[in-house]
C-alpha cells in the first residue's frame, strides 16, 4: 500500500515548553487514520506540522512526497483541512464562503453539488453566524473538499455537537473515504475512533504510546468479555460456571454477570438454551479504547 504521510521523530516546542516530543507514524493511502489523545497531548501541533502551518524543531515530515515547509503551496492544493478553532466571518454567507475559497485553489470541484451532498443547499444564503454547530462543521468539510484533495485532515470535527449530529458526521466521514480519499481524524473521543478508524495512533505527552488497529489495541489488553442478563427467580447461576471460557459468575437476585474469554456470548447462550432459560436484557460488555488508554497511561482520557 502506498504511504501518503511519513512522520519521523517530529519534535516541536513553544517557548521551551515541549508540545510534541517524539512522534513518528505513517498513513496509508485510502485509510481513515485516527490520532487520539487527551487535550494538550500534542495532536493539533502534530497535524499543524504535517500540513505546514508550523515549522517543526526536529524530525522530518513528508506528505504526498512533498515537504510541507518548502512546498507548502503545492501541498495546499492537494490536501483539505478542517481546523480546530478556525472560523469564517459571522456575516459571510455559505455560498460566498464556498465561492471565495474556491478561488484559492488551482483546480476545484463545482461547489453547488457539494452543498447538496452535505445538506447545505437550503442554507446557501444563510450567514455563517446563523448556522448551527453541525451546519458549520458541514460547511467546513465542504470547504475542505473544494479542491478535491487526496488527503483530508479533520481536527476535533465533532466537538460541541450533540450526539445525533455526531453520528451523522460519522457517516459523512465514511462517505469521504468511499470517494477514495485518505482521512486523518484527530479527536479525543474514543468511540469516534473505534467506529471510524482503520488504524489509530494514541498520543500522550507528545509521544505515540500505541499505534495499531482499534481491534488489535483492544485485543492486546487480554480483556475479558462480560455477558449480562436477567433470569427468572430460582435459576442457579452456578450451573454456568462449567461453560467453556467462563472465569467468574456473579448473581445478584435476577441479575447475572458472567465474565470470561473466547466466544463467550455464544457459549453462554447455548448453555442457557440447554436449560430452557430465556434470558432478558441480554447484553455484552467488552473492553474498549477507553480501557486501552487507561491501561497505557493509568489515567482516563478525560483527565
Amino acid at each position: 500500500m502506498t504511504q501518503v504521510i511519513e512522520v519521523r521523530n517530529l519534535h516541536k516546542a513553544y517557548d521551551g515548553v515541549t508540545a510534541v516530543d517524539d512522534v513518528s507514524f505513517n498513513v496509508d493511502e485510502g485509510e481513515i487514520f485516527g490520532i487520539i489523545g487527551p487535550n494538550g497531548a500534542g495532536k493539533t501541533t502534530t497535524i499543524e506540522s504535517v500540513i505546514g502551518l508550523r515549522k517543526p524543531d526536529g524530525g522530518s515530515v513528508s506528505v504526498l512526497g512533498l515537504d510541507p515547509q518548502t512546498e507548502a503551496r503545492k501541498l495546499g492544493n492537494r490536501i483539505g483541512t478542517q481546523l480546530q478553532e478556525a472560523a469564517l466571518p459571522e456575516r459571510m454567507k455559505v455560498w460566498e464562503a464556498l465561492d471565495l475559497y474556491a478561488s484559492f485553489y488551482e483546480k476545484t470541484v463545482p461547489w453547488e453539488p457539494l452543498v447538496e451532498q452535505w445538506g447545505l443547499a437550503e442554507k446557501r444564503n444563510t450567514q455563517f453566524g446563523g448556522l448551527s454547530g453541525g451546519q458549520k462543521q458541514r460547511l467546513f468539510i465542504s470547504l475542505a473538499l473544494l479542491n478535491d484533495p487526496q488527503i483530508v485532515f479533520l481536527d476535533e470535527l465533532t466537538t460541541g455537537l450533540d450526539p445525533q449530529a455526531r453520528r451523522a458526521t460519522w457517516d459523512l466521514i465514511r462517505a469521504i473515504r468511499e470517494q477514495g480519499k485518505t482521512v486523518v481524524l484527530i479527536t479525543h473521543f474514543m468511540d469516534e475512533v473505534e467506529a471510524l478508524a482503520d488504524r489509530v495512533a494514541v498520543i500522550d505527552h507528545g509521544r505515540v504510546i500505541a499505534l495499531d488497529t482499534p481491534d488489535n489495541l483492544i485485543a492486546s489488553l487480554n480483556g475479558e468479555t462480560q455477558v449480562l442478563f436477567s433470569v427468572p427467580n430460582g435459576f442457579e447461576a452456578e450451573r454456568l460456571e462449567k461453560v467453556s471460557g467462563v472465569t467468574a459468575v456473579h448473581q445478584h437476585n435476577q441479575h447475572i454477570t458472567i465474565s470470561g474469554n473466547g466466544p463467550l456470548l455464544a457459549n453462554v447462550a447455548a448453555a442457557l438454551a440447554q436449560h430452557n432459560i430465556a434470558p432478558a436484557d441480554l447484553r455484552v460488555q467488552q473492553a474498549n479504547l477507553e480501557d486501552v488508554f487507561l491501561a497505557l497511561t493509568g489515567r482516563t482520557i478525560r483527565n
Binding site: I51, L53, A72, R73, K74, L75, G76, N77, T81, L83, E85, A86, A87, L88, P89, E90, Y101, F104, Y105, E106, L143
Partner: peptide
Amino acid sequence: NYRELGILRRLRATPLG
C-alpha cells in the same frame, strides 16, 4: 477580530499565502 475568531487561521490553511 479575524485573528481572535480563527478566521485568519482558516485562511492560512489554504495555498493562498
